[in-house]
Nucleic acid binder design. Structure first.
Lengths: 131, 131
DNA sequence: GCATTTACGTTATAATATAACACTTCGGTG
DNA sequence: CACCGAAGTGTTATATTATAACGTAAATGC
């Protein structure tokens, strides 16, 4: 039987799902103060669990978190495409890319367990409105 | 005329080149105290410049820095393979992977400017000595 | 029921990174 | 050469991100 989430975990997950862009732990804390959360560990513990369950992802390069865009993300190997202008994030699952990553890792003599890939640039609409 | 590096920049770069594994800003600071460096900004400024010059890279997922393994790394798109056991890092430049990344970004409607890719696992020798 | 694990709330602190200020050094360029 | 501006320096202080440690409480498994 798969365990259900706890109150704090649900609060954090729902906030991330509703957010238009990646959130830091402290911005989540700020938003959840009105729900009674008061200290960083409460956020970080929930985030830790949600990460382990594959329900959210961490964007390492900006110390921020996003809800997984796939209903049940067992994928340990995903890529993220982030717009420098509007912070919109797309989560990319691509078999081809996954194969490629495995092949790169193998070249280095390593069996991949976990990976992170983050690509930054300008999306179409932000590119249009550039100076 | 290409400008030469300053004293602090050289100290940081040399320390990174000599290091067997990725170093954090504060571990660099610790090592460079004997050379007169005293405060974080001195390190972070040198790191920032070296990053901009492509002489070093930052591993975002572990807040650490490594010297570029290619003599003159103009490549903005590199991948890193890191062993969880011994922290050894290989920097991978692979045209195929680069193409793949561009293609993934394009799918999301974005022109890639910068990217980071970090793959974790166990290298051959660490895999051998596992419990 | 009772033991074990997992989560909770809280206080304190560690680790990573930057702001801001006054001063210096170095390359141009008039 | 003399001046200017850009880039670098050293320093203090502080912001941001993350975890340690403690005792309590709830839930899970047998």
């Amino acid at each position: 039987m798969s365990k259900s989430l706890t109150k704090n975990q649900i609060l954090v997950l729902d906030t991330l799902k509703a957010a238009p862009k990646p959130q830091t732990a402290y911005s989540l804390l700020e938003q959840l103060k009105e729900h009674g959360l008061k200290a960083p560990p409460q956020i970080y513990r929930a985030l830790g669990k949600l990460l382990a369950l594959g329900l959210i992802h961490k964007l390492e390069s900006i110390n921020s978190f996003v809800a997984c865009q796939h209903s049940d993300c067992a994928h340990q190997i995903a890529g993220f495409v982030i717009c420098d202008g509007c912070d919109q994030v797309s989560e990319i699952i691509d078999d081809n890319l996954e194969l490629q990553i495995h092949s790169v890792a193998k070249t280095a003599g390593l069996v991949p367990k976990k990976s992170t890939m983050e690509i930054y640039g300008l999306c179409r609409s932000c590119k249009g409105s550039e100076a």
